[in-house]
Design a binder for these strands. Structure first.
Lengths: 266, 266
DNA sequence: TATAAAGGTGAATCCGCAC
DNA sequence: AGTGCGGATTCACCTTTAT
């Protein structure tokens, strides 16, 4: 039976309704708490369209920590002993997330670096170009030795060499980036499908159940469906859900398993 | 006057003797892997055996947090308002270090990824090859806007394009790796000079004072001297100090400033 | 139609000083 | 503290418009 569900509601409340040891993989793309305070202009005086969404507002580190402790605790309860937990973040939040995960008993297997092909430059020359985001790949505990890791698939996918913890992937732009009727990006932080493809290919098997507590416009669900995995997504914003549902429903051709592992040039 | 000092003693105790606002740059390479390698004791002094449950782990993490809070607090006091703080770590410790730094009021400017050219593979095929370490570059506080950043030097050093937060650098091997009389490596975690060259070139000026509270075999001091910067190192192991002192004393030819910024191929 | 030039944009904690 | 203004500052990729 195929599970293919998007739940509309508050992340923590909906997580509480999910039974223990239910998920093979949890992928979480939580708010980063970006703390943007000023307007940034490019050298040509155009304005940068930064993340100013309501869902990224927190009053303090303490408030953000309480929020993350709550949803991460539920995720750990839901995760199978053999399962994998992935969380993506930037330097704004990933250190707090990582510390909380360690305190909750998660066991870090890799900190994967998304090394962006085309990051936005630092326009004023005040810092290095921030060219990465970080993904934490964790098992449920130190004792969870039987987590799924498809080493040979990833090795072949990487052209015959063991895949490293650095993934060189472009931003989600062009045709893949979902636009609204106004032509503007539908979600300010849509992730590239290539990122989810690697996460799902490496740490799940076919028919596994994937949970995404911050579903957004459904990249996790779209890739899960294409790869023949089940998923449950939780999202509180109904406008994102409409987009995600349409996106996923429109997928008819699943990816050919024989092609998943073809070597790619990056 | 040139400051070129190696202090033998306990890191935290020696840091306390250094006055406020003294250092232009602090580079710290603290112990990484405190967890689970040491014997744990319960509050009643009984020894914790084998099983590492949630509370055991938390105790271990707590000790590491106390240690880091102590030396990082001293470093922040010592750092000039215009100064830079750098800390290097791996996924074992950098999340805790990052959280503590944020809680102390440090302001993250970049999380620089040291992307290793020649990482050790994962022999068992149980994880992705761990190919990175992380450097946190921070100013003293959010309000510290006048930190030194030699944007143009780094841009030229990077072949004319803005340098990004990903640094592709090899491990410290071959002739650069200091060996003992037994032919074995003198220090288990000696860092490549190229790493320190970028840190020092980007965030200090000539004659600035650099502090390294975990001096080891003196890579920070060696590069500081070659680049015409002053330094103070703290190290508790006298055998490391002997090696570092000899290493630094043997440096006679400083690097030619005109050549620092020549574009390199990486 | 093909090629070239111009314009838009991405999870961004992006200035300094005078008044 | 807020405002205003002078001045220094950007990379890769995709889309649209012009030749």
């Amino acid at each position: 039976m195929t599970v293919n569900t998007i739940i509309h509601g508050n992340c923590i409340e909906e997580l509480k309704k999910i039974p223990d040891n239910a998920a093979d993989l949890i992928f979480a793309d939580p708010p980063y708490n970006m703390q943007l305070k000023t307007v940034l202009y490019r050298p040509n005086n155009s304005k940068v369209d930064g993340v100013k969404d309501y869902w990224d507002k927190f009053n303090s580190f303490a408030e953000y920590d309480v929020f993350c402790t709550a949803w991460l605790s539920e995720c750990r309860r839901i995760l199978k002993e053999t399962g994998s937990m992935w969380v993506i973040g930037s330097y704004h939040n990933i250190f707090r997330v990582g510390t909380i995960m360690l305190n909750l008993g998660f066991w870090i297997l890799n900190n994967v670096t998304w090394y962006k092909l085309n990051p936005m430059p630092n326009f004023l020359g005040t810092r290095f170009t921030n060219a990465t985001e970080t993904l934490l790949w964790c098992s449920k505990s130190e004792k969870s030795k039987k987590y799924t890791f498809n080493h040979h698939i990833m090795k072949r996918y990487n052209g015959g060499k063991q895949m490293t913890s650095v993934w060189r992937i472009g931003l989600c732009v062009g045709g893949e980036r979902i636009k609204g009727t106004d032509g503007k990006k539908a979600h300010s932080t849509q992730k590239p499908e290539e990122l989810l493809k690697r996460v799902i290919l490496s740490t799940t098997n076919k028919d596994d159940l994937i949970l995404d507590p911050f579903f957004g416009t459904g990249t996790t669900g779209a890739v899960a469906k294409k790869l023949g995995r089940n998923f449950i997504g939780i999202e509180r914003d109904s406008s994102y859900i409409r987009i995600a549902q349409q996106r996923i429903d429109s997928i008819v051709d699943l990816w050919d398993e024989a092609q998943w592992v073809e070597a790619k040039q990056w």
